[in-house]
Structure formats: structure tokens, C-alpha cells
């Protein structure tokens, strides 16, 4: 047991935690864009899966990680347009259409994987980039500054998203259509357009989250690669109070627990692996149960907007 508390193990856990936070950050911050505009997209996990497949397939066949990333973005955008069309234009029940989107992504990625790839293969994805000077600092450098570009991107996304949401005119529109779409509409804001853009940004980021798994963190694809991480990302949005910084803390908490349980297994600590794998999910439930009452969700969340109905 003493092994666990050695510096190298702690550093290892923290390094993994930073890496593992990546898909959560992309997906949850994307979902925050969508939810702040009033649309709950429960299909995040499906978008992640199908984008993870697409980027993996492209990298496997072309060897270009950038083309792979582009594929994830394009697929994410298409899935976002589909979700927006169903929930904004057709005004369908968002929870149901999101679950439909998830099932679609899960099934299609699995089908395509079986027909086009067949067995689990690996690719050379995004490689760690050591940041000059900072990366050479002992321990700290290893934990924070020797990651792949997608990992850095996820953390840079936090201030970027905060800036867009809080400091720009578009961010104000995004917030207002989620809080009181009738008010935004009465000032000439095109509610449907803002929601389309918000859902699509969310879906593109979900796509990148998927790619971060298949061509950066794991460099492989298999059935149900995400194992529900997209749903945890949705929970993280609530946990983080619809704020990028809140989501950052949430993502780090979950990824740390995840890294911890992985290292427990690696070190052969005697707890059943199933229990260990359960930990992040148990934490999701516990965290939501504790936080859900104190945060204020967008007032028009889950409500389609129709002019003249108030």
C-alpha cells in the first residue's frame, strides 16, 4: 500500500488526471454552450463515438492526424445540425431526441467499425509535445507540460469559452435565449439561429472530445469506446453551474478519481476492478445529488421557443 503514496505514483496519477480530463473538458464545455442557449443535448456520447470512429478511420487510412481531427469536427457538426433540426426547428422533446442521437451514434459507430476495420488496431495519433523550459521542471513539468496538443487545447478552451460566453455580444445572446427567449426575440435576436449555432458548437466540441480519445489518448477504436463519458460530461455541466471554470474543477475531480482507480489496478491494490471502474460514476451521482439544488439552471432549458406563446 505504501507504493501509492510515493512521489512518482502521485505524479503519475496527476499526469493521467490531466490527460483524462481532456474529453470531459471538450464535451462538457461544448454542452454548456448548448445548454446555456436552452437546449439539452443528451446525444453527446453518441457524437463522441461516431466522431472518434471517423477520426480514427481517417488516421488509419491516411496517416494524417489533422485530417482525422477535421473528420471529427465535420461529423460533429453534422450531428449537431441534426440535433438542432430536431429540437429547434421541429421542437421535439429534447431528452428523447438526445437519447435517439446517442443510440444512433452508438449503433452506427459500432456497425462501421465492424464493417470497415473489424479488429482493434492502433494508430499513431497526436504525440506528446514538451513545452520548452516549463517541460523541464522536475515533476511539475512532467505533470503539466508534456502532453499532446489536444490536451493543451482542452485546457486553453476554458478561458476561451469563458471569454466568448461572458465578454462578447454573442455570449449575451446565447445566455438570453436560454433564460428568456421571448425577451431576446422581442429585441430582434434570432432565437432559432443562436440555438442552432450553440448546439453546433457543442456538437463540434463533442466531436473533438471523441477524437481526443481515439487519436490522442488511446490511439485505438473499439465498440462503445467512450463508455458513457459523454453522459458524465452532461452531468459536469450541471456540476459546474454552466460555467467553464466550474466545469474545469468538475472535470479534474472526475479525471483524478479515474486516474486513481486506474493506478490502483496497475499497482495491484486488492479491490475488485469492477468496483474501481464504478468509482467515477458513483461520484457523478453523489456530486449531482449534492450540487443540483444550489445551482440555477437556464430558465428556458429544455423548452422549445414559439413566438407568441408565453
Amino acid at each position: 500500500m505504501n507504493d501509492v503514496f510515493q512521489l512518482s505514483v502521485v505524479a503519475g496519477i496527476l499526469t493521467s488526471a490531466i490527460r483524462l480530463a481532456t474529453p470531459y473538458l471538450y464535451a462538457a464545455i461544448g454542452e454548456a454552450f448548448s445548454q446555456r442557449s436552452g437546449v439539452v443535448n443528451l446525444g453527446v456520447d453518441g457524437i463522441m463515438l461516431i466522431s472518434a470512429y471517423a477520426s480514427f478511420y481517417i488516421v488509419l487510412n491516411t496517416g494524417s492526424i489533422w485530417l482525422g481531427l477535421l473528420a471529427a469536427i465535420v461529423v460533429g457538426l453534422l450531428m449537431g445540425l441534426l440535433m438542432a433540426f430536431i429540437s429547434v426547428t421541429l421542437k421535439a422533446e429534447q431528452g428523447i431526441s438526445g437519447i435517439g442521437l446517442y443510440m444512433f451514434g452508438l449503433g452506427l459507430s459500432s456497425l462501421l467499425f465492424k464493417t470497415t476495420i473489424g479488429t482493434v488496431k492502433t494508430v499513431t495519433g497526436f504525440q506528446p509535445v514538451k513545452i520548452p523550459l516549463l517541460g523541464d521542471i522536475p515533476v511539475v513539468g512532467e505533470i503539466f507540460f508534456q502532453h499532446s496538443l489536444l490536451v493543451y487545447g482542452a485546457f486553453l478552451l476554458v478561458p476561451l469559452a469563458w471569454f466568448v460566453l461572458e465578454k462578447t455580444t454573442w455570449g449575451l445572446k446565447n445566455k438570453s435565449v436560454g433564460q428568456n427567449p421571448a425577451a431576446a426575440d422581442s429585441l430582434g435576436v434570432n432565437v432559432d439561429r443562436v440555438r442552432y449555432v450553440s448546439v453546433c458548437i457543442g456538437a463540434i466540441l463533442a466531436g473533438i472530445a471523441g477524437a481526443s480519445l481515439s487519436i490522442s489518448l488511446l490511439n485505438l477504436f473499439q465498440d462503445n469506446l467512450t463508455a458513457g463519458q459523454g453522459f458524465i460530461a452532461v452531468a459536469l455541466v450541471y456540476f459546474g453551474g454552466w460555467k467553464p471554470v466550474g466545469i474545469l474543477w468538475g472535470a479534474l475531480l472526475f479525471s483524478t478519481v479515474n486516474a486513481f482507480q486506474l493506478w490502483m489496478q496497475v499497482l495491484g491494490v486488492k479491490i475488485p476492478s469492477d468496483v474501481a471502474i464504478m468509482l467515477p460514476y458513483l461520484l457523478t451521482i453523489a456530486a449531482l445529488a449534492i450540487t443540483i439544488n444550489r445551482v440555477r439552471q437556464p430558465a428556458a432549458l429544455n423548452k422549445p421557443f414559439e413566438r407568441g406563446e408565453s
Binding site: T169, S176, L187, V189
Partner: peptide, 16 residues
């Protein structure tokens, strides 16, 4: 037609 969770200035600036 106001957004209660936004400030007066934000409500006025919205859409402009």
C-alpha cells in the same frame, strides 16, 4: 421582456 439573471446594462445591450 427582461432576463432577470442579467444586469440592467446587459438587458439593454442585448441584440445591439
Amino acid at each position: 421582456m427582461l432576463v432577470p439573471t442579467m444586469t440592467v446594462a446587459e438587458n439593454v445591450a442585448l441584440g445591439l
